[in-house]
Each structure stands twice: as structure tokens, then as C-alpha cells.
Design a protein around this nucleic acid. Structure first.
Lengths: 360, 360
DNA sequence: GTGAAAGCGCTAACAG
DNA sequence: CTGTTAGCGCTTTCAC
């Protein structure tokens, strides 16, 4: 390992205590000259405090636990990144454990983290609605981010699906659409339900009558969206726009329209939700609302930090609204960038091992 | 915190030493009856060892560091998941830090991790080719996974791009294609270069002449693939199949073909690389080769573990080959599932708050 | 077989 | 202002 405090103290010709006082943000007074000697010694020896030892003494390990139910979900990594970025500012690190929607594994994970004296735990996309016995007993603070099911619970940070949906629907309404279909997510999911609720309320508030035939529940997936769209096409009069509750279903819907010979957005306008990365590439590029995953992660970390410091206690559910991304699929932007534009945007050249290709 | 060894010992009526001996995989002999008493006391108090204290004594923290240059890359999460799953088996945990392609941040990250007495470090998608001074000095083992640039280096686990490319090309050859275009990745990237090398070698080995005009370098992106395909379409005679060096460019190429009125795979067969999640959804579903990210993570963790234990030292670069996924875009499968099939595959039903919709 | 004691590296009283 | 001392919870000699 690297140099210890003792060595630094010896080199600086002071006691361990003094060295410690200089090398921490301790308020205890130390003479300037002494301070300098210690600092110099530390620099010379490349002293790095052993955080384990410090943590043992102070009960502050500068570590929190992150329990992810599905690390491979498209939303989990940006949430974690948000958490990490906030942690970095306060000089903390996160220990990440997977729980795979299994209560036993999760219990085990909590236990493992507690054993490592984390100062708090953040659950990412947890199916759980309440902390385990052990966690409660430990008195450690915790937060849920992007809780997928159930009613509002304290200490959780979730997307404002209701508000986000209103953003995209009012955009469609502003474009003149009056007959708007809805491919809903599975209603067992919190987000799906909120988005559908908002669809119903927003249309009603704008004086439109709800046509049950224009609402089709699907399963979040591409193929589900494709099938749902087929169903919507059989309704008459046909909707002029469709709000899909997520991007994958919107893409599936586009596929159905395409194979039916209908154009997006000219024949039917389409919008999604989530702002998945692929949505801004595929043609037509999708108008959608972002899921503010990164910001949710930051917020959860910040709230956990306040709880660790004792400046906050149980907090009510926090909702964070995404942004509306207006692209081509709703008709508000030119239908498609031209290939000329693409040519400018991208550099393409030939290659064949070593030799420069001929000009064409 | 939870119960300490001392309390367990007191309850069991033995010394701390004895309790410790029972509760670790210590070989020291303990009478069966005593052992039972300790075990019972531990269970009763729900004893969980303080891993910090143990780590301080043993210099084994059961923790490794993971430095990710880009957590939001599509490949990083599955690599990390592979690492974590292996770590779980050996009862280790990973401390994840981001470095964002910045050498200073990376140096800092290494320092932070060392300060926490990690037993080794895995670099994920690192741009770096060698460990820092400090890391070398620390004597801690390390591994690189999915190193993106440069020649083979020791202690790294990378995909076998050469072999993977051969898989997909031989598939196209077996389907009878003789004029195969190639949308290459940016040749500064290791993977791109290897895939192009393999393209050249495989075609040559099968007695085909390389036509430089059929090789277009692009930028890994959707739009780049679209532009590259336009370029390939101007070559005459036209290729009957195109191997894109990644899925995104393949999707872009499909878009170009579609807007040109050409069908995939009837008019031109297309294949990608990486097996991105979206490739198995969009129509036509993409034939591609997987990047064995998960397995790479597992392998890196396993090798690191061997180095930690001292049963292995510096190891030569390990290459792991992906799998060929045959789908519709190359023409080897029926062009598209029918909508009837889709109907069966997915449950779709109406919903309107509370009320069951009418049968249609 | 069992236990007393030392100590990992650090911080926090408490004296001076 | 500085230093001495105790001890966080655990493992590990070394005696018995």
C-alpha cells in the first residue's frame, strides 16, 4: 500500500494527530509553518488516506449502495450516471448490486451493502414499494428512483408522466389534430397508467370527446405497437394522429403504417414517449418526450445526501417532467432531411489497406 | 450498526477469538459444541461481519474497482453486468467510477480506488493502453475489457472481430453472393480495422477479387450508413449484398434502400454487426453478429481474480468471438413475419378507465 | 481447544 | 497550538 499517516508525521517531524489535523478539513488550529511541513511531507510521500481506516473511526465510509433491478434496462444506466455525478461532487462512491426483480436477492443485497457500512441506499427501478425490515432497523436513509409500480410513496423520485403526456398532446392539438388515437402501455405499470390518464384528461379539458375505440392497450414492445396500429386503422373515422405511450410501440406503429402504404406524418401523425436514442435516427424521426432519467438520478442522490446529513427526512414523492422533442413524425418539422444535408453532415471516404482510393 | 463479534462472543460465552474462528473459514480447530453455541448466538443477533474492519486487518477488502470510460455506451452495461455476476460468485463487489475518456479523470479515479484499497481494477472501454504509474507502483492487478484502440496488449479482453466478420461473410457467400459491398467503420478504431481486414481476407480466401469501389468508410452512425449506401448504389455492377460494420450503419443503409425503392433482402441483402437490441425488432430484422459483451466482462473478472489470487500473472490478449444471428435482412429467413403471426404473439385489448370496452 | 493481547490506519477526546 | 492515549471491529500471533 501507500504511505501512512504515521510516515508522513515522522517525515514532517510532528505527531500523527497534527498530521491528521492538517490532512483533513479539521477546524483545529495548526500553526502555518507546521501545516506547511506536513503538507510537504504528504506530497513527497504521495500520501493518500486509507479510507477504510478513516471510515471505521468516523462511521463515514463515503460510500452508498445502489441496488438495480435491471442494469440492462435502457433507463438504468443514465439514472446511475446521474447518481454517480452527484456523488462525485460530495466525494462519495457507489457500490452497485443487481437484484433482478427477486425479493430474496434484494434482501441479500441490502444485507451485503449494510455489511460494508454504506451510508445509504438508492433503489433503481425497484419493484419494491417499501424497505426491508433490516434496512429499516439499520436506520440508514434510502431512496427509490423510477419506481415502476404502485401509487406514490415517500422517498421516491419518478418521472412526471402526466405532465409529459400533456406536453406532447397539446402539441398535437396545436397542430390541429382533433381525432387522436392512443396506444397505451400495460396498465399495470404506473407510467402507463399515468400517461393514459393524462391522455384522457387533456383531451377532455380541450373539449374533445373520448372515443374508447381510439384507445388500444399494448405491451411496450415494437410488435405490440405494430398490432395496435393495425387495430386503430380499422376504426372509422380514422385518427389523424396517434400518441403511443412509448417509442418502441411508436416505431412498431410506423412499421404498420409503412407496410400499409400510409405516410407519416402526412397521413397519420405519430408521437412516442421516452426519447430512446434510436428515435432521433430512424426515419421519420420521432417526436417524443424524454424520460428525465439522468436528472432523476441526480435528484435521488441529492435527496439521499440531505438525509445522510440529517438536513432532510422522509420526503414526498418527487416528480420530474421530461422535455418535448419535436421532430418529423408529427408533421411540425419538414418531413425528412434531404440527402444533400446528410452528405454535408457526414464524412465518407474510401479505404483499402494502405492505399488511398481514386477520386470518384 | 448491527451486532459486533464481541456481542456474539459474550452471548455465546466464548472469547472473541473463538467466535472469529467459527465465523470465518478459519481452519483452526474448535470443539463442535462450542461452534454450535457461537453459530446460534450469531444467528440470534443477526451478526453480519463489518467488512471494513475485516478488510483492514486482512488487506482483503473483497472489492475491486471498475473504471468505465462511457457508462452510457450500449456495450458498457452488459460488460459490467458480466463482471458483477462473476464477482458475485466470489463474494466481491465492484466500485464503479466514470472517466469519460479524460486521462486526468482516469488518473484521479485510479487514485480514489486505490485509496479505498480495492484489490484490482478493470477498465471498461478504456482509451488507455497502459496502466498509470501509480497503478503500476501499487502492484494491484488490472484488466482492460473492450479496449477500443491500438494493437493487442497484455491483460485485455476484446471481441474477436476478425472471426465474427468471417462468420457473417461466409454466410453471405453460402447464400450465393459474389459481389459484396462493405460499409466500414472509422479505421482509427481497432474493431473497424479488424472487421475490414477480415472482409478483405475472407473474400480473397474464397477466390473473389476485391473491388475498392465496394468499400466505403463511414462513421458508425445511422446517417453515415445511409450516405455510404447511396455511394454504393452508384457503383456498377451493383453489389448484391452489403456487410455493414455495425448495426446502426446497416439500419441507415436500409433507410436509403427503402427510400430508393429497393427491397431488402430481395434486391440487396444486408448484414450488420453488434446485435444491438433494436436489430431484432425493426423490419426487416437484421442478420448480425453479436458483440459478446457479457462474456467479455465475465472473462475479465475471472482473469483479474486469478491475478488477485496469484494463480495467474500478465496474460496475453484474450479474444472472444460473437455469435451469428440469422434473421431476415440477408434473405435466409422468410422476408417478414405475417401480421397474423403478430396477432397471436401479442395480447392487445381496449381500456378506458374502469370500464371494459365493447367487443369488436 | 481456547483466550489474551497486539495492531491494521485513522480520528477524537483530553491534557498540556 | 501540539501531543498522548484510546479505540473503531476485526484477525492473528503466541501462550496456556
Amino acid at each position: 500500500m501507500s504511505a501512512t499517516l504515521e510516515e508522513v508525521a515522522r517525515v514532517a517531524g510532528v505527531s500523527i494527530t497534527t498530521a491528521s489535523r492538517v490532512l483533513t478539513q479539521n477546524t483545529h488550529p495548526v500553526r502555518a509553518a507546521t501545516r506547511q511541513r506536513v503538507l510537504k511531507a504528504a506530497a513527497k510521500l504521495q500520501y493518500k488516506p486509507n479510507l477504510l481506516a478513516r471510515g471505521m473511526r468516523t462511521e463515514r465510509t463515503h460510500t452508498i449502495g445502489i441496488i438495480a433491478d435491471d442494469l440492462l434496462s435502457p433507463f438504468t444506466p443514465p439514472i446511475i450516471r446521474g447518481i454517480q455525478d452527484y456523488l462525485k461532487e460530495i466525494d462519495y462512491l457507489g457500490l452497485i448490486v443487481n437484484s433482478d426483480w427477486d425479493p430474496d436477492i434484494e434482501r441479500e443485497a441490502i444485507s451485503t451493502l449494510l455489511s460494508r457500512a454504506v451510508e445509504g441506499i438508492i433503489f433503481v427501478e425497484s419493484g419494491r414499494l417499501a424497505p426491508t425490515q433490516e434496512l429499516v432497523k439499520s436506520q440508514k436513509p434510502y431512496m427509490f428512483v423510477h419506481r415502476l409500480f404502485g401509487a406514490p410513496v415517500q422517498n421516491s423520485v419518478v418521472p412526471d408522466d402526466y405532465g409529459g403526456t400533456r406536453l406532447v398532446l397539446e402539441h398535437l392539438l396545436a397542430l390541429g389534430h382533433r381525432r387522436i388515437g392512443h396506444i397505451a402501455g400495460p396498465q399495470g405499470w404506473h407510467s402507463a397508467q399515468r400517461r393514459t390518464d393524462s391522455y384522457l384528461d387533456t383531451l377532455s379539458q380541450h373539449g374533445l370527446e373520448i372515443d374508447p375505440a381510439l384507445i388500444v392497450e399494448s405491451d411496450w414492445e415494437f410488435e405490440g405497437g405494430a398490432v395496435a396500429m393495425q387495430q386503430l386503422l380499422q376504426v372509422s373515422p380514422r385518427p389523424t394522429a396517434v400518441f403511443a405511450a412509448n417509442d418502441m410501440m411508436a416505431l412498431g406503429a410506423i412499421e404498420t403504417l409503412r407496410s400499409t402504404g400510409l405516410r407519416v406524418p402526412e397521413d397519420i401523425a405519430l408521437t412516442g414517449y421516452d426519447n430512446r436514442e434510436i428515435s432521433r435516427s430512424l426515419a421519420p424521426r420521432l417526436t417524443t418526450v424524454s424520460l428525465p432519467t439522468y436528472q432523476m438520478g441526480v435528484t435521488a442522490a441529492k435527496l439521499l445526501w440531505q438525509k445522510i446529513q440529517g438536513t432532510a427526512h422522509d420526503v414526498d414523492e418527487v416528480q420530474i417532467c421530461g422535455r418535448l422533442y419535436i421532430r418529423e413524425s408529427c408533421g411540425a418539422l419538414p418531413a425528412q432531411r434531404t440527402h444533400d444535408e446528410l452528405d454535408v453532415a457526414t464524412t465518407v471516404r474510401h479505404r483499402l489497406t494502405g492505399q488511398q482510393p481514386e477520386k470518384r
